[in-house]
Amino acid sequence: MNYTWNWGIFLEPSPEGVGTYADMLLSGLSWTIATALCSWVIAFGLGSVIGVLRTLPSKTANAVGTAYVELFRNVPLLVQMFLWYFVLPEVLPTEIGTAVKQLPDAPFYTAVLCLGFFTASRVAEQVRAGIQSLPRGQRLAGTALGFTVAQTYRYVLLPNAYRIILPPLTSEFLNNLKNTSVALTIGLLELTARARSMQEFSFQVFEAFTAATILYVLINLVVIAGATLLERAVAVPGGR
């Protein structure tokens, strides 16, 4: 193979004028992490609400929850990204639409909203599965003690369901993190986008992608280690 390796490339200044190629990748990494964390807040909150809706003894609540999940699960993320970025500002009232388009860091806010709503549908499915996996008697016991529906969820069902679904929620968190790369299509300068531009400027394709790969693997390892610690911290003595 006639590819010329140059691992020193990371220390060379990037064509952006400030910092090296390494700085460029690290800036991408920080956007990736910021986007992943912010969108996860939405995904976790909204997903929990939608998941709970699907377990309530109300046909309307079930229908709303199901409609949400089906809608966001059956449209590719890339298409959703374009809908939020290109379509939403056009169908909003003109003044608001224009304001949205002129927002600084618009790709970031769009990506956060898009990923938040998208991942919420996946979190919702996990929350629903977690609640439904609890013995039916738990809900009855809460109700029999005089808890309202909200109290039964708050004090009995959710604390148990979250413990059960911690491993799949960790996977969803990682999926959400990886999905931030789709936002490069709307101009978010996250890690993959930065690796790609480093390749375009320097022609050192494999160094750029290797570095990005290592960074992604590292974040994965950190998240998994964190999840393991969390699992241990919330484990119930004598539990399964």
């Binding site: 008697g137 738990q138 009855l140 016991a141 029999a144 005089g146 309202t148 119930v236």
Partner: peptide, 20 residues
């Protein structure tokens, strides 16, 4: 109903203590 249930004690077949 919550108020009524609070005054009626119930014991279940599978205990249903809150495991957490």
């Amino acid at each position: 109903l919550p108020k009524l249930r609070a005054r009626v004690g119930m014991v279940f077949q599978h205990f249903e203590l809150f495991p957490h």
